[in-house]
Write a protein that binds this DNA or RNA. Structure first.
Length: 836
RNA sequence: GGAACGUUAGCUCAGUUGGUUUAGAGCACUACUUUGACAGAGUAGGGGUCACUGGUUCGAGUCCAGUACGUUCCA
């Protein structure tokens, strides 16, 4: 399931993250042999698109008001056809493996009809009503907004203390604090707290609004906070939702002083036709000049801005269409509460519950043309019927009112975009327009929704409601919330900050694989990610590493030999086989928990460290030497399997390498994953020991400045000589040792460096001149650590309460730690003695 | 004002039900190495009082309470 990307836009980093995650999940599901369906699509984004089209027309010198609805819509469709598909092309460039033939658009004819019918169905059920309520008005787009479309921002404002003259007394006044002096013409009361001693005497009296001298009552209500401002509040029911409620309670008049574009209306009486913010400045000046302004102070509070046009939202009383959310939200709340739908990360469950329990009605009408036109019809008196078209509306009217309507006019408004996208999970399979069809029966409910937490209420919650309401089933089983993409300083990426990188340029510069790698490696499960371009470089380096490994392996193709004397490094092969299977088991777990970033890290390290740094070095033949055919074959198979594991993250390079390793028809992207095989943990620990010994010996060589080309001889004292013997071939190869001797006790060897690895004491015999100080230093340091460690273990074991209370297996373990530490300490002390 | 989440190395993060080392990665950093897949590399190394203060416990990065700071959401 793809969230419908905004038809107006180009891809940004948020899309990049979101769609990369979905692609990873889809590719992996496909490799597991599942019929993975990922539906692409775009939504019509009514406000944003309409704003774009209006702007485009304005540039051409055409005003929207000069066009008929039909003409405007034809321009909008033209725009959609030209730009609407761009985003899908960009997804292809990112490597997203969508089912392209299923591409949908929320205003496709069938989908459009479904939206309209959903409206009618809900209206007939009594879930949709028309009502005059306080709404958020966007004065630029000239439309209502839902609460979710309003973004609150901390804003520095000026708080004006204004004097309102009291009735009856010449020089007396009451001081009111407001940040909106331009609304005083809409004041219909002043309100104080009933317990406020400062105003006890004023209750029930009257004051005059400055400049226009309208007489308004002074009322008392507990809503007013005594500490804020002067404790006296000017009540403007038309322009603030709290004031509106106060007004309702106290039966106050409502005076709307604004026009729909944010200019002052005739009702205001003064400054008519001027913009609200211009008036704020002008009126403040006039109030000051006329002595009404006592003082000003700066004040920071949250102000609502329109999500789409970024202008300050105006609370406004207006007649709109609403969905009664209480009637529809119940099953959707339960579905998440009882985990029929699981949220990843789980913390969003709380947020969801809180919103659902305090849900408010959804304002679904928008004063726009681009969108699904509300199927409501009005007669001359404003009587309403809801029906899909005029003919049905007339029939409905007759049924309802018993007469034939002379003229029926359709509502001019459109539905909120989300009123169409909430049907997405089933209507892309025509689950509403053709209920129970084969497709929807097969694919619905879908599995996983991947989306940004910002639209949990806009979209996720409403899809769940729609699913429960119209399909009687939840729309998906898991919801994975991605983090928010931020810049290095932790700021949200936004157009206005200009900190959002151009994704297309990045794809050109680094390639899709590197960009996908970069964003995924930086993206911890459930957290925001601080994105930095340098992670793309890491991706690029990784590509390069894989490419070089390919070069190496391919160069072996001509060097294969079936010579029976040629040894096959079976330890290396068996070890890597086990390591690979172990990593696959880890990956299985990580995918199960949606820890994709960690899954990528696991594969990255498997390829870079285990495969390239260890395995390939172990099986690598000497300069221009042959290698056994078996080794070559196994190496190819390993490489293939690694590419398959990496493929969901980096589809392009893995596919290419897969074909370069061996010419073939089959594609990696559709190749099923082989069943996981068991791994041998003894082999894994042998490999671990080998790696540790190699590192320790290299370190000793480094510190004693023994050149890589200078050979050494190894004498190893070990309690497990058989284990050591199994690794000597690889060990001597990796540290340039000409001979390895292993025994349970070894006398000190002349002119040698001693290192201790685990319970092994290794003498590195060399012909070079030795300076024992550095190795002594290292041994002393190790000794110090071990003694401290031993002390902490001893402390535990000598604590009677610990021995009494702790789990026996833990005590056993502590005893083992103690014994091991003692052995190691003995070995180091012995080594130190030989140095003296 | 209310709520949720977070605070572990210079940066970004792991760390499962308290005991598997005296806390791990990846980047970045330092030294050495131009070796024959790869200098976009290799080899090795340094780096943390786990925000703070108390508490529970034989034992706390992990559980509890409070404080500070941060982010987000809702008023």
């Amino acid at each position: 399931m793809i969230p419908p990307p905004n038809v107006t836009g180009v891809l940004h980093m948020g899309h990049c993250l979101n769609n990369t995650i979905q692609d990873i999940l889809v590719r992996r599901a496909r490799m597991q042999g599942k019929n993975a369906c990922w539906v692409p699509g775009t939504d019509h984004a009514s406000i944003a698109t309409e704003a774009k089209v209006v702007q485009l027309l304005r540039e051409k010198g055409i005003a929207k008001s000069s066009l008929s609805r039909e003409d405007f819509l034809s321009h909008a469709w033209e725009w959609k056809n030209k730009y609407g598909g761009i985003i899908l092309e960009q997804l292809k460039k990112m490597g997203c493996s969508l089912d392209w033939e299923r591409t949908h658009f929320t205003m496709d004819p069938v989908y459009y009809k479904a939206v309209i019918n959903v409206f009618i169905e809900l209206y007939n059920k009594g879930y949709i009503y028309r009502g005059k309520r306080m709404i958020n008005w966007d004065p630029r787009a000239k439309t209502a907004l839902s609460d979710e479309e309003v973004i609150r921002k901390q804003t520095q404002q000026t708080l004006y203390h204004l004097r309102y003259k009291l009735e009856g007394e010449q020089e007396q006044h009451i001081v009111v604090a407001t940040v909106r002096p331009e609304t005083i013409m809409g004041d219909t009361a002043i309100c104080v707290h009933p317990d406020d001693p400062r105003y006890t005497a004023l209750k029930g009296r009257y004051a005059f609004v400055p400049l226009i001298n309208r007489r308004i009552p002074i009322i008392a209500d507990e809503y007013v906070s005594m500490d804020f401002g002067t404790g006296a509040l000017k009540v403007t029911p038309a322009h603030d939702s709290n004031d509106y409620q106060l007004g309702q309670k106290h039966g106050l008049e409502v005076i709307d002083v604004f026009n729909d574009d944010g200019t002052l209306s005739n009702e205001a009486g003064i400054y008519v036709g001027k913009d609200r913010f211009e008036v704020r400045k002008l009126i403040a000046k006039e109030l000051e000049e006329k002595g009404y302004l006592e003082k000003t102070e700066t004040y920071s509070s949250e102000v609502g801005y329109s999500e789409r046009t970024d202008v300050v939202v105006e609370p406004r009383l207006s007649l709109q269409w609403w969905v009664d959310m209480k009637k529809i939200s119940g099953p959707a709340l339960d579905a998440v509460a009882n985990e029929d739908i699981k949220f990843y990360p789980a913390k969003f469950k709380n947020l969801y519950r809180h919103w659902m329990e305090n849900i408010k009605d959804w304002c679904i009408s928008r004063q726009l043309w681009w969108g699904h036109r509300i199927p409501a019809w009005y007669d001359e008196q404003g009587k309403v019927v809801v029906a899909a078209d005029l003919q049905q509306a007339q029939e409905e009217y007759k049924k309802l009112y018993g007469t034939t309507a002379t003229t029926l006019q359709q509502d001019e408004d459109c539905l909120d975009t989300w009123f169409s996208s909430w049907l997405w999970p089933f209507e892309v399979f025509k689950g509403y327009s053709q209920p129970g069809n084969k497709e929807v029966a097969y694919y619905y409910p879908t599995n996983t929704l991947v989306t940004a937490p910002e639209i949990i209420f806009f979209w996720v919650a409403r899809m769940i409601m729609a699913g429960c309401e119209f399909q009687q089933q939840i729309p998906f089983r898991q919801v994975y919330f991605t983090g928010i993409v931020r810049d290095k300083q932790g700021r949200k990426m936004s157009k206005s900050l200009g900190n959002s990188p151009d994704l297309l340029a990045l794809l050109d510069q680094y390639g899709a694989d590197a960009v996908r790698f970069g964003i995924m490696i930086a993206s911890p499960a459930g957290n925001d990610l601080l994105w930095d371009e340098s992670t793309n470089e890491q991706g690029l380096h990784f590509n390069n590493k894989i490419w070089n490994a390919l070069k190496l392996v391919r160069s072996w193709e001509q060097r294969q030999s079936n010579e029976p004397t040629l040894a096959t490094p079976s330890l290396a092969i068996d070890w890597f086989e086990s390591r690979l299977q172990q990593a696959r088991a880890t990956l299985e777990e990580l995918y199960g928990e949606y820890k994709l970033s960690e899954a990528l890290k696991t594969i990255y390290s498997l390829i870079w460290d285990d495969f390239c740094s260890w395995y390939l070095e172990w099986v690598k033949p000497g300069f221009e030497q042959p290698l056994s055919a078996v080794t070559y074959k196994r190496t190819l198979l390993f490489f293939e399997e690694l590419m398959q594991l990496l493929h969901p993250f980096m589809p392009f390079i893995t596919e290419e390498v897969f074909h370069q390793l061996q010419a073939r028809e089959e594609d990696l992207t559709v190749r099923p994953l082989a069943a996981p095989r068991p791994f041998d943990s003894q082999l894994l620990s042998a490999g671990e020991l080998l790696k540790q010994m190699i590192s320790a010996i290299r370190d000793a060589r480094n510190k004693n400045q023994i050149k890589p080309k200078d050979p050494v001889k190894l004498h190893i004292e070990s309690e497990t000589p058989l284990l050591i013997e199994s690794i000597t071939t690889l060990l001597s190869k990796q540290v340039n040792a000409t001979s390895v001797r292993c025994a349970s006790t070894i006398e000190p060897v002349a002119n040698s460096i001693t290192v201790v690895v685990g319970k092994q004491k290794i003498f590195i015999e060399t012909s070079a001149q030795l300076d024992t100080s550095s190795q002594k230093e290292k041994l002393l340091k190790d000794l110090d650590y071990l003694k401290g460690f031993l002390a902490s273990v001893d402390k535990k074991l000598s604590n009677e309460k610990f021995v009494q209370n702790a789990n026996p297996s833990i005590i056993e373990n502590e005893k083992k730690k103690q014994a091991d530490a003692l052995t190691k300490i003995r070995l180091i002390e012995e080594s130190l003695k030989t140095l003296l």
